[in-house]
Design a protein around this nucleic acid. Structure first.
Lengths: 191, 191
DNA sequence: TCGATATATATCAAATCAATATATATCCCC
DNA sequence: GGGGATATATATTGATTTGATATATATCGA
């Protein structure tokens, strides 16, 4: 999905500024399955406006810079639907934490621990944010709910796995020297 | 991690050609946490060679094009170690499948099903490949084992979640209309 | 012969990323 | 007072990556 389609996706849910679109990819539901930067968003919005797929209204604000609020047009919605009918590319994951931990034997024990615990914290935070967001759920589309629960299952698995498998990288700390991963036990999702 | 570091990482495990480095990011362990294309690999190797961080030997082959086999130098290994000490960027996930499923209500039921089942198949395949690879394990570094088991836990969660939560997107097919996600039950990892 | 596959190296235009710039505000610390 | 941090805003640019393409050596099948 290119930046134009990603912007159309956010705007299909409601009008937004370029900055708010970026926020949707940081804290909103879209951040679970895509990232996109300002360097892509603004040129994409400019192109979409030129193509008649979005319109915008400039708004002045008190104590804040002016903003442009974009709206999707029927042509934009049609373009989004066309994009949803294309064959999707395979999922891609990029994790510098895992790259570093892959080379654990090259790291000082302190650095190994630092990276591991910091990594675990990132997923604990994400899970906590999700659990907060769950309390605000009103009327939600099935697709949104599916992605939410899947994301939560993923984060839960990450936290659970790392909490229970320190022995794989820190046998000296855990007193365990076996190299078998612990079974997953946590319950995930809505229940 | 830039392309140069990624190449150094592969070469730290043993000599390889540019093509073999790419293969490590497709079928090998690195593909679980990074992707990189030829457009980045070859320029990176050229730069690394110019910087003295790798050396290469040109080899002629029977029935195949000639190849360049690259080796990491001590300077390259030092550069890799420096990279491993930098603060890692946050994990990033890109999933066109999830983008499409997020907009499930915009899809025809047939398309929704097609995407869902195709998505489930991608993770089933990955899990199957992993289970095959597990049979070939010899002496493995702890970091490699950790990443392997974490990856397996992730793929297992994805398969399990999707097998048990069709009702979230297909209430008409499953006879279930509740919107709660099923608990995770599968056992992951080395057991 | 073409298309597909596999093994190889290499390149290029398009897209994205990361950083930067500018603007309007607030807060805190030195 | 200035700097740094934060937040809300738009915009741009150089560096890097991506996806496609090209070339080469082979095999296989329609």
């Amino acid at each position: 999905m290119d930046a134009k389609t990603l912007c159309l996706g956010v705007l299909a849910l409601g009008d937004a500024s370029g900055y708010e679109i970026k926020k949707q990819f940081e804290d909103g539901p879209f951040g679970q399955f895509h990232q996109v930067g300002f360097g892509s968003i603004y040129p994409a919005l400019t192109a979409l406006a030129a193509e008649g797929q979005v319109t915008f209204v400039e708004e002045a604000q008190e104590g804040r810079p002016d903003k442009k609020v974009y709206s999707i047009t029927p042509a934009g919605l049609a373009a989004l639907k066309r994009a949803l009918r294309k064959p999707p590319a395979a999922d891609r994951v990029r994790s510098e934490y895992l790259f570093i931990l892959f080379f654990a034997e090259m790291l000082e024990p302190e650095r190994r621990r630092e990276v591991y615990e910091s990594y675990l914290d990132t997923y604990r935070s994400r899970l906590a944010e999700m659990e907060e967001a769950a309390d605000c759920h009103g009327e939600v589309q099935p697709g949104h709910r599916f992605v939410f629960h899947l994301g939560k299952a993923f984060y839960t698995t990450m936290v659970d796995f790392m909490e229970n498998n320190r022995h794989l990288l820190f046998p000296e700390d855990t007193g365990r020297t076996d190299d078998r991963a612990a079974p997953l036990r946590r319950v995930a999702g809505g229940e």
